[in-house]
């Protein structure tokens, strides 16, 4: 990806991938086989990283919230976030929550848990190599726990078959992030996922509703390919160490409001107006290009 000027192709890609999702859903709805056709998702799955690759593999840049439907408060939270917070012992082994974990490098093993006597499907289990997370998707119709129950990184999930699509609803997820550059996701999100298998490909669509930090739902999709020879890299040990030995007890690194030193780093590198980099729901949609144009012209004029 060219990085010297405004990466229009990159922008387009990002936008296109987000349009692609509703289309995909529509297509799936059209071709879904009706009735009770349950698909077996079992196997080891390896992701394809082509969608949003720069975010998923190298990792997002600081103060880049472009294309994410965040609200004002999420932006303030993220701009206060000092990456040094990750050096605190309690944050070092912190897991990506279930709403984010499928974005990074990972392998997923899926298997079924069935009642031995009746072979009734009790749960679909997943093991995610990143952070060694075990996930249980209950398929036996049990209710979600009460509000006052503990929240976990993987949350509490129930699933049901809609045609040959597995739709999963997850609540009780811990506070985490929508993007791993400090953009927070609250502990009140609801995650809806669709797992769709086409032969040896698995499409995973996730919809995050966050009443605290998102103005609109955040919709993402990832593709996986069945890996017959899955090996290696199933472990993710983490033991915290003292990274900053002389940090005073009780200190939490953060930037004072308006003092984030990285606000212009991403925008300068890519020639993107700050207004766009600060994200928000409208930056998700193609119509934003119209708004972007005058902003870009203004920016270029200022440079001259």
């Amino acid at each position: 990806m060219p990085t010297t000027s405004l990466s229009e192709s990159g922008m387009d890609n990002a936008l296109r991938s987000r349009i692609a999702v509703p289309l995909l859903l529509l297509l799936m709805a059209l071709f879904a086989t009706p009735a009770l056709a349950q698909v077996d998702l079992s196997g080891a799955w390896t992701p394809r990283y082509h969608e949003d690759q720069p975010e998923r593999i190298p990792g997002p840049e600081l103060a880049d919230y472009l294309g994410l439907p965040i609200n004002e408060e999420a932006r303030q939270w993220a701009l206060s976030w000092d990456p040094s917070r990750l050096t605190m012992q309690e944050h070092q082994c912190q897991v990506h929550t279930v709403a984010y974990i499928y974005r990074g490098p990972l392998q997923v093993r899926i298997w079924e848990e069935r009642e031995p006597d009746t072979q009734q499907l009790i749960a679909i289990k997943q093991y995610i190599s990143t952070y060694e997370q075990d996930r249980t998707i209950w398929m036996d119709g049990r209710p979600h726990p009460p509000d006052y129950a503990a929240h976990t990184w993987m949350g509490f999930s129930t699933g049901k078959w809609e045609g040959d699509t597995l739709t999963v609803t997850t609540t009780h997820i811990k506070q985490g992030w929508h993007r791993r550059n400090g953009l927070p996701s609250s502990d009140q999100i609801t995650l809806t996922e669709h797992f769709i298998r086409h032969g040896n490909y698995l499409t995973h669509v996730s919809v995050v509703n966050d009443p605290i930090f998102l103005a609109e739902p955040l919709i993402k999709s990832q593709n996986f390919v069945l890996n017959d020879t899955a090996s290696g890299n199933w472990l993710w040990p983490c033991e915290y160490v003292e990274e900053i030995a002389d940090r005073p007890a009780g200190a939490v690194p953060h930037y004072m409001p308006g003092e984030n030193p990285f606000v212009n780093e991403f925008v300068n590198r890519h020639g993107i107006p700050v207004e766009a980099a600060m994200g928000g729901p409208e930056t998700m949609y193609p119509e934003y290009q119209r708004k972007l144009k005058p902003l870009l012209e203004k920016m270029r004029a200022q440079k001259k």
């Binding site: 509000d147 006052y148 929240h151 811990k174 506070q175 502990d187």
Partner: peptide, 10 residues
């Protein structure tokens, strides 16, 4: 709600 260390750290 019931919490663990990660929650109170936030």
């Amino acid at each position: 709600r019931l919490c663990d260390e990660a929650d109170i750290v936030e």
